[in-house]
């Protein structure tokens, strides 16, 4: 079968949060370098001291390509900045509602009537759904069983989750003795073998 050349490009919308070298650093000083490094498809946001958020709308053949190239470009422009997280990934009911143009009440109602396959939150809020936090990709996969979901949104959600988890695993491995990391890895593989 012939491989598909010139795959159609889509615009992927996602966010990359960086922590700057010093909390007193002015994030605006990086804008020139970011633009020069090809981040003119990002909208910079400043708020919390010492952090810079880049909201990208990047054209690429797939979400992973879009997100990885964005992180690489931004990191090149700001070598001293540290990646914090990629989004959209972790979110609660309110943010999900906003993302989908729905009300919170709507989303909560859906969670009640489709409770059976509702994914586990990453962190369950005390009492009810209001404070719970989920991976967006888990929620979108659940939603896709009863309504149509934007495939581009699902793609960036999955990619964000993947990169965040890889990054977290890497950071953890720096903190813990290799032996322990390997042992934990073996345990998980033993208990939950990978699908064929």
């Amino acid at each position: 079968m012939k491989s598909v050349k010139n795959r159609k490009k889509e615009t992927y919308a996602f966010e990359v949060l960086f922590r700057l070298q010093s909390p007193d650093e002015d994030p605006a000083t990086h804008i020139g370098a970011l633009l020069a490094a090809g981040c003119d498809d990002a909208t910079p946001g400043i708020g919390r001291k010492g952090y810079l958020l880049l909201s990208f709308d990047r054209e690429a053949e797939d979400a992973l390509g879009a997100v990885c190239s964005a992180i690489e470009d931004a990191q090149q422009a700001m070598p001293q900045a540290q990646l914090v997280e990629v989004g959209p990934d972790l979110l609660g009911v309110s943010e999900l509602a906003f993302l989908l143009g729905q009300t919170r009440q709507n989303i909560r109602h859906l969670m009640q009537i489709h409770a059976k396959n509702l994914p586990e939150p990453v962190r369950a809020g005390v009492g009810q759904t209001s404070a719970s936090v989920w991976h967006l990709s888990d929620l979108l996969r659940w939603m896709s069983t009863f309504r149509s979901v934007d495939p581009l949104l699902l793609a960036v959600a999955q990619t964000s989750k993947l990169i965040n988890m890889e990054y977290a695993a890497w950071r953890l491995a720096q903190q813990m003795p290799q032996k322990q990391v390997r042992k934990a890895h073996r345990l998980v593989q033993k208990l939950y073998p990978a699908h064929a």
Binding site: T11, E15, L17, A28, I31, L35, D40, D41, T43, P44, G45, I46, G47, R48, Y51, L53, D57, E59
Partner: peptide, 17 residues
């Protein structure tokens, strides 16, 4: 609010798109 990340948003002169 948006993780406190957009209190100030830069408006670019010549964004890519």
């Amino acid at each position: 609010c948006q993780g406190g990340a957009h209190c100030i948003t830069s408006i670019l002169s010549t964004p890519k798109n």
